[in-house]
């Protein structure tokens, strides 16, 4: 039996509002994600997708309910989860190579990681591994000496993925990681992450507002939808298993799946097209 990577039991998240009743964001979310799954979480803007991701990350605590990662509660973000946000994913003061070797360095040297030059042999091994990961994500050695501001948005996200994967995290969390990219780069990045997921077997939780992206990437699509006018928080509107497809696959009607998920996310607030 597969090990349960993430278990969310009846989680509620309420935010206090000064002088008013607290505002509910997530309302009774229950979700089990098995190890090695690629789960895409989709929903309208403001429906609590990123809140759910922050809960898994340990960055936020549920008001009620329980959240376990590999059977343990976690109180702050740690190495258990890799993280690729939409923006600010790289450290601007470090070169591409230093960004990727940062994780292994701080893990190996701890508080003395600033004195990395006293361990040249180990640093060389880290650099070689980082270069391997960079090549794997489609970058070459000439990019390794560049600073993040010298890279395009797509290249920055490739580095961010290499930076996260070099730590071999059991769970990789991606928060609208490709939202700021142009269409062609985005497709390239989607193919890359799918390839890396297949190779590594890491559990991936991918948050997006783009239904098509969710359906094409995930082996499971979780659609969140606001309840009523949104004051009662969001809950899971659809939990849909999707075959692991290539992007140009014609085995199933992707458009039909997209429409199905769109209907679910807009369950209580149907979109009106004139």
């Amino acid at each position: 039996m597969l090990e349960r990577a993430i278990q969310i039991d009846n989680v509620h998240v309420d935010y206090p509002v000064a002088g008013q009743a607290s505002r509910s964001v997530l309302n009774g979310i229950s979700l089990q994600i098995e190890s090695g799954e690629f789960v895409a979480i989709v929903g309208e803007t403001g429906c609590g997708k990123s809140t759910l991701l922050r809960l898994i990350l340990g960055e936020e605590k549920p008001t009620r309910g329980r959240l376990l990662l590999n059977g343990c509660e976690r109180w702050q973000p740690d190495r258990h989860c890799g993280y690729v946000p939409q923006k600010y994913s790289l450290f601007p003061d470090k070169t591409v190579l230093d960004n990727v070797t940062f994780g292994p360095e701080v893990t190996a040297f701890g508080a003395w990681s600033g004195l990395r030059w006293i361990r040249p042999l180990q640093m060389r091994l880290f650099r070689e591994e980082a270069l391997r990961y960079l090549r794997h994500t489609g970058l070459d050695e000439s990019d390794a000496r560049k600073y993040p501001y010298q890279l395009s948005g797509g290249m920055q996200q490739r580095v961010a993925i290499a930076q996260a994967l070099i730590m071999k995290p059991p769970i990789l969390l991606m928060d609208e990681a490709f939202s700021a990219l142009d269409s062609a780069t985005r497709t390239g990045m989607q193919r890359l992450i799918k390839k890396l997921w297949r190779e590594s077997g890491t559990t991936v939780v991918f948050v997006t507002h783009n239904t098509r992206e969710a359906v094409c990437l995930g082996t499971r699509v979780i659609a969140l939808a606001k309840n009523g006018d949104g004051n009662r928080g969001s809950s899971i509107a659809l939990d849909l298993g999707v075959p692991d497809l290539d992007f140009d696959s014609e085995e199933i009607d992707i458009g039909k799946l997209v429409r199905e998920v769109d209907r679910a996310t807009a369950r209580e607030r149907p979109l009106v097209y004139n």
């Binding site: 990350l57 960055e59 702050q76 973000p77 740690d78 190495r79 989860c81 890799g82 993280y83 946000p85 600010y88 994913s89 450290f91 940062f102 994780g103 701080v106 893990t107 930076q163 996260a164 730590m167 995290p169």
Partner: peptide, 8 residues
């Protein structure tokens, strides 16, 4: 957050 996830 990124720093924490990288083991810092």
């Amino acid at each position: 957050v990124k720093g924490f996830t990288l083991g810092a």
